[in-house]
Design a binder for these strands. Structure first.
Lengths: 199, 199
DNA sequence: GGGTAACTATACCGGTGGGTATATTCCGTT
DNA sequence: AACGGAATATACCCACCGGTATAGTTACCC
């Protein structure tokens, strides 16, 4: 049902890895259009030639960045939920703690995929596909957790939790309100409580 | 308490108005960094000189775009809620209909302020201020509606509705899930019902 | 050894980025 | 009739954009 399999990672040469690492940080921190390939190559200690040999184009580098970030997020999230939940009933809410932790350890610039979409108006291309994949997977994952917790109508409740997660990410990025993630978690808890659970 | 007064609009010459109108549409549709001043001037049928005489810099043009959009949104929203609500109890939920309407009549690219923030990493400058102003006002406005509807703890519930509105905007922009705005409204309704109301 | 893949160095391409300078025309006000 | 604001036209600045081309340098594998 829900696939926790992350998108396959292409083999990268050492220089390619350095490029991708550097680009990932710059793209998330500064934005897609604000970062040029020259500065990426320079920061990675690599020639532009190497960058283009490895990724072909900036668009493809962006898409690779998003796909890898998605893959890491999925693996990290599933692991986090596994380690920080005692029962299946805890798991849906633990995902909000995961957001808090994730945003704390990277720069608090909100959701990388939402930010990327803001800079990619045309709804075609590999980057756009990667963004939508992330959103769909997240919805399905939350739905599966809610279902495993024994709630009726997991489809609806899972999607509602997804909405709250999106809100938590984006409002944490703006800083308004201050305790956004905690409030989103509380709200999710209220929703789950008001819908009852199967024995 | 809640100010419905929009930020004051500076007087603009006819050419300045054309520039701002053109820039507003391009900025929202294509993104901030993706649109150059040359193309704005060209599309507005105006010289770059005129653009810089009117706005001074691209940053200031961006900030003016955001401030005016915020002002229009506030006025339009308050009017919409007034026209489409029968009782004070209806008003909080009517704001979700407003989002649907607003996103339907402009291009469905999500929240202009969230999108702008994605391209403005440094948390200083007039544009950043405009974004935070919008988010704070929205939170206060929803809180005031909830309070007028007679709910206890309007602070919390108002902020929760704000979270759902942010989610509605951003997920409508991605298209995942499909019925995002309606689901956000339903969720808001569930929250309001579960908290009861004062007689 | 010979070959191949990874990588560096450097230079180049046309186009565009934000921003400025100069000089001129239109037009309503006083 | 003169002034000043608004707008025009044109040309320029330098830096950077994404992307390409050529040539040379490692290092490892058969």
């Amino acid at each position: 049902m829900t696939q926790t399999t992350e998108p396959e990672q292409p083999r990268l040469t050492p220089a390619g890895t350095r490029v991708l690492d550097t680009a990932s940080e710059l793209f998330y921190r500064e934005g897609l259009h604000a970062v040029g390939v020259d500065s990426i190559a320079r920061a990675a200690g690599v020639t532009k030639k190497t960058l283009y040999d490895c990724f072909g184009s900036k668009d493809e580098l962006i898409a690779t960045y998003l796909r890898r970030r998605d893959g890491r997020w999925r693996a990290w999230l599933v692991d986090f939920v596994g380690r920080n939940s005692d029962t299946p009933q805890d798991k849906p809410l633990t995902t909000f703690d995961a957001i808090a932790q994730w945003q704390h350890q990277t720069n608090a610039r909100g959701c990388a995929f939402v930010n990327a979409l803001a800079e990619l108006p045309d709804d075609t291309g590999p980057a756009h596909t990667a963004i939508l994949d992330q959103k769909r997977w997240m919805t399905e994952y939350l739905t599966s957790l809610v279902e495993a917790a024994g709630h009726p109508d997991p489809e609806t409740l899972g999607t509602q939790l997804f909405l709250l997660q999106e809100a938590a990410f984006v409002t944490h990025g703006t800083g308004v309100p201050e305790n956004a993630i905690q409030l989103a978690k509380d709200t999710a808890a209220a929703l789950m409580a008001s819908r009852g659970r199967r024995p």
